[in-house]
Design a binder for these strands. Structure first.
Lengths: 122, 122
DNA sequence: TGACAACATCCGGTTATCCGGTTATTAGAT
DNA sequence: ATCTAATAACCGGATAACCGGATGTTGTCA
């Protein structure tokens, strides 16, 4: 049952939980977005995203300079059911709603910038 | 979302996963049974069970010299849904079926012994 | 009371996880 | 070619998780 334990281990970190939540609310996000919304270092964001990537939770898609990540779990798989349960649990949490709002604002601000491609990740 | 992360952390250990599985297949088990079926040390069994106890996953019930544990999650709670999903995932795993068989044999052997209360945990 | 069985907790050692800071890579722009 | 932004990989260090063996506790029985 090692595999199953690892499945849960993926979800046993607050940062990764938040990443899942963001990715469930927007089908594709770049590292830059996640850094900004969660307020974490680049190193931390990238590390966790690569972790999820290597376990098959997400796929990456390069778009010029950015790396975009999106959830990729087979429909009906244990991972899929797990995520569905997770979204059910988190939806009722104010903290999760706040995060969702921050994501919206972040993306809106990004869209407004004249150069829509800018990330301002200083 | 610390609380949610900890929920998953409970399940992020193979030994605890097996314990959950056993407890889902038999409503009450003593430390001794779990030691025997999983083939782990007493210290290990007790430590994980106390861990689950303190997080509210199980309740304890002393019966003379033994300590019995049973699952105790509120129906409909996230924990409950999590366990239901877990049983769904594990049911199809041969490894889990084998464990279940070992549990049956262990309990049968225990029942056969003249002194039904004996544990022979040496 | 003493002996014993089941269990909990403590002790230390090992390993895994997580982190920030740094360096390396990649792709686009000049 | 060179410069820069975005990202990935690497490197200690701190912390937490996990373990077996030893010790303490509790309840039973003689």
């Amino acid at each position: 049952m090692k595999k199953e334990a690892q499945l849960f281990k993926s979800l046993a970190d607050e940062t990764r939980l938040k990443m899942f939540w963001l990715l469930m609310n927007r089908d594709e996000l770049c590292v830059c977005d996640i850094m900004g919304v969660l307020g974490i270092t680049q190193s931390k964001a990238s590390r966790h995203l690569r972790y999820l990537f290597h376990l098959g939770w997400v796929t990456d898609r390069r778009e010029g300079v950015w790396m975009n990540y999106r959830l990729s779990v087979a429909p009906g798989s244990p991972e899929d059911k797990q995520l569905k349960l997770l979204v059910e649990i988190l939806s009722s949490r104010p903290e999760a709603q706040a995060l969702k709002d921050r994501l919206e604002h972040w993306l809106a601000a990004k869209g407004q910038s004249k150069d829509a491609a800018a990330c301002q990740c200083s």
